[in-house]
Amino acid sequence: MKRRRRRRRDGKHPLSRRGFLRGLGAGAATAASAAAATVGTSACSTDWDKVFQKHYKEMTAADKKKVFARIAAEAKQRFGKAVTVSDPQPLPGVRFAFCISLSTCNGNRKCVHACVEENNQGRDPAIQYIKVIELDRGTLDLERGDQYYGGEVPRANKVYLPMQCNQCDNPPCVKVCPVEATWKEPDGIVAIDYDWCIGCRYCMAACPYEARRFNYHQPSLPASQLNTNQGYLSNRVRPRGVVEKCHFCMHRTRRGAYPACLEACPTGARKFGDINDPDSEVHKIVKHKRVFVLKEELNTVPHVFYYFD
C-alpha cells in the first residue's frame, strides 16, 4: 500500500532502519548492510516479499485506483457525499516556495480559516496549520509573540507573522520518523502518508517551527463543510491518531493553482510560486528583496521567506 520512500533510492543512507529490518527479514542480520545496499536483487526481494507480504511496496496505478475508491467509499459512508480523490504528481523541475510580506500582513487570519476549509481539518478540537503570531514591532522574538490575539487588527506597534510548515530542504521531521511515513517530494513538499503514520509524534518534537498537528480524536467535520476535491497525500479526511501539516495545498498547486491561504488573503501579503523559474514572483523577491527565514541557524533550509516591502 505504501509509497516506498525516496531517500533510499538516491543511496544517501545505505543503512537505514528499514534497510536493517529488511536484512533481518532475509535471515542474515550480519549481512544487513550488504543486503540494504543491494536493494532489489532477486534473492533478497523474494524473502522481502515473504516477510512483508503486501504491506510495503510501491503503489502501481491500479493499486492507487483501488485505494482512491476505498477512500471515496469511506467518505460516502461517513458524510454521504461523493468525493474525488487524486494524487497529482510533482511537476518536473519545480521547487515551490512561499514569500510573505510582513509589512503587508495585517493579521486578520483569513488564511488560517481558508486553510481549514480547504484541507478538511478537524473543527473540534480545532486543527489549524497556520499560526499568526503577533510580535512587537522591532523584534522578531517568537517566544514573546502572541498567537491568541483578537479584536481589531492591525494594532499599533505590532507585526504579524504567519507561520506554517516551511517545507525545509533539510527537514528534521523526516529524519526522525521511525517508520518513514513522511518524506520529501521532488518539488520540495514534505508529504505524510496518513495510512502509514503510527502517531508517535517524534516529528512534532523535531520540527522547530511547530508546524505539525496531531489528531487526538477522529476529526469532527460537518458534511456540509467537507471539501470534496481531495488529494491522497494532502487533504483527504485523516483518521484518528495521525500527524498532519501544511502541504502547500498539493492537490491545487500541482495543477497550477495558488494555495487556498493565498487566495483568501485580502492584503496580498502572500506570494507563491516556483523558485526555479526566473520569471516567477518568488524568484524575483528572493533575488531583489532582503528576505529572511526563521531559525536559519538550525540549517533546516526553509522555503518560506519573509520580507518587508
Binding site: T253, C265, T267, G268, D274, K284, I285, K289
Partner: peptide
Amino acid sequence: KRRDFAIGAHGKLVGGWR
C-alpha cells in the same frame, strides 16, 4: 512600492502560479 509592485513583491496576484 512601485519597484516592489513591478517585481511582484507588492500587490495581490490572482489566477495561479503558472
